[in-house]
């Protein structure tokens, strides 16, 4: 409990341990990708793991993000008790490959979690993510009880000024956001920014306090993902985020890797055939300078497998 109180205080004041530790990091949106000339890698035409291999190489290799002995936290979308071919959760093969890259880069520990919508034990199992992560040498961590979540403040938030964030995120040396691209009834599309709703406790608050604004607000939270990997292998084009059947799915075989959530979401929206500016939270996050949705300004490595 002491550790928790410590986090509440330190994160709240923005002066504590976490903040000091994160001073070394520039805000992801403005940081030049270490060891790479590219801001983003976009891949098409391969299996999820093969595409990631290509993308991360273009982005300077995993060792540019994960240092020896570091603790890595991966946040995929594991929201639903639905098998991998239904595209409701992040592809397990991709998550597995990311875990492998992290371990290869010398990570001490790779932890994977989500605050799921369906019962977490069923989601972790049916999605295939639990068994794939374990196979790759990572660990899955529950996100099912409030005790895991620490209160933080979001100084730039317009509607979302406080949130309870999973302690793993706050303690992580490296934080990787691995969403799956999907249609979404409330947010229109769910990609990397919306995926972080699964890193907080009270989602209902977001729903009743202007969902789009809350999503954009949380994108301004200082602990941004260090790496964003958008899974667009099986893409749910309609009836999202849960989907009804495989008929909702298009096998797009694509992937986007970057350090900027707003850019990731903008690129993924385009892949989906939607103008990023028409998704309110992408536009709001861009305006709040949480990142950029101007893909023209980015140096993108386009890879076809």
């Amino acid at each position: 409990m002491k550790r928790r109180e410590f986090f509440v205080k330190s994160a709240g004041a923005g002066l504590g341990f976490t903040a000091v530790m994160s001073l070394g990091r520039l805000p992801a949106a403005f940081a030049a990708t270490p060891g790479s000339a590219y801001d983003m890698a976009a891949v098409m035409g391969g299996a999820p793991d093969v595409m990631f291999d290509k993308a991360i190489r273009a982005m300077g290799g995993m060792s540019a993000y994960v240092k020896k002995g570091q603790r890595v936290v991966i946040k995929p979308n594991i929201g639903w008790d639905v098998p991998p071919d239904r595209g409701a959760n992040t592809n397990p093969l991709l998550v597995k490959r990311i875990v492998e890259h992290c371990i290869q880069a010398g990570a001490k520990e790779v932890l994977v979690f989500d605050n799921t919508c369906d019962t977490w034990t069923k989601c972790y199992k049916t999605s295939g993510i639990e068994s794939y992560v374990k196979k790759a040498g990572g660990k899955v961590v529950p996100g099912n009880t409030e005790g895991y979540y620490q209160q933080v403040t979001i100084p730039q938030g317009k509607r979302l000024k406080n949130a309870k964030v999973h302690e793993l995120v706050l303690e992580a040396d490296v934080y990787i956001d691995v969403p799956v691209l999907k249609s979404h009834d409330s947010a229109k599309l769910t990609i990397s920014m919306k995926n972080l709703m699964g890193a907080v406790w009270d989602r209902r608050y977001w729903h009743r306090n202007d969902l789009h604004q809350c999503i954009a607000d949380f994108a301004t939270f200082h602990r941004k993902p260090d790496l964003v990997v958008v899974d667009a292998y099986n893409v749910m084009m309609k009836n999202g985020p849960r989907g009804i059947s495989k008929n909702d799915i298009v096998n797009m075989k694509a992937q986007i890797v970057t350090t900027d959530m707003v850019a990731a979401d903008a690129a993924a929206a385009k892949m989906f055939g939607v103008d990023p500016a028409s998704i309110p939270y992408i536009r709001l996050a861009d305006e709040a300078k949480a990142g950029t949705m101007d893909l023209q300004s980015l140096n993108i490595s386009r890879i076809k497998v």
Binding site: H184, D185, S186, A187, H207, R208, N209, D210, Q213
Partner: peptide
């Protein structure tokens, strides 16, 4: 409904609906 009272998007119901009996 939030959408009517607050004039903001919500859709949590439809999001969770497994058959899309609740749709937007």
């Amino acid at each position: 409904c939030i959408v009517k009272t607050d004039k903001t998007d919500c859709g949590a119901c439809s999001e969770h609906c497994p058959t899309k009996a609740v749709h937007m």
